[in-house]
């Protein structure tokens, strides 16, 4: 039972990592690429870490808190890092993809100086 769960979680993690990297290669501009990295790749890593938690729980009957700490840290750090990088890209004026409908940050920054 735990073998099936571990294998399933490992394969799910590898699949989401591959999907995230394919999005990184295929998306048209940097904001879409950051979206792909921040969600799909993080989900892949977290799934792999949960697989290792299940595996070591079943094999050595130790609850490895370290993997859970990495999961918590990734869930906190990935949105922050991705958001900071997207904001920096917008501040240094990297153009959006031409399919983009609206740009609220540009509208808001019209009255505020660029370096706050």
């Amino acid at each position: 039972m735990s073998e099936i769960l571990t294998s399933l979680l490992i394969l799910t993690g590898a699949f989401f990592l591959l999907v995230g990297t394919l999005g990184l290669l295929r998306f048209p501009d940097v904001y879409n690429r950051l979206h792909s990295v921040g969600k799909a790749s993080t989900l892949g890593v977290v799934s792999t870490l949960l697989a290792s938690v299940v595996y070591f729980w079943a094999q050595q009957s130790t609850l490895s808190v370290k993997q859970l700490a990495i999961v918590v840290f990734l869930y906190m750090s990935s949105p922050v890092g991705t958001h900071m990088m997207a904001r920096a890209a917008h501040l240094i004026g990297i153009p959006l993809a031409k399919e983009t409908q609206r740009d609220d940050l540009k509208k808001r920054r019209g009255s505020v100086p660029a370096n706050e």
Binding site: T21, L24, V37, S41, V45, T48
Partner: peptide, 16 residues
């Protein structure tokens, strides 16, 4: 962003 994705892949590889 690509280096972030590479780091995620390295972490997953280490865990596997």
């Amino acid at each position: 962003a690509a280096l972030d994705a590479a780091t995620a892949n390295v972490i997953a590889g280490i865990v596997v």
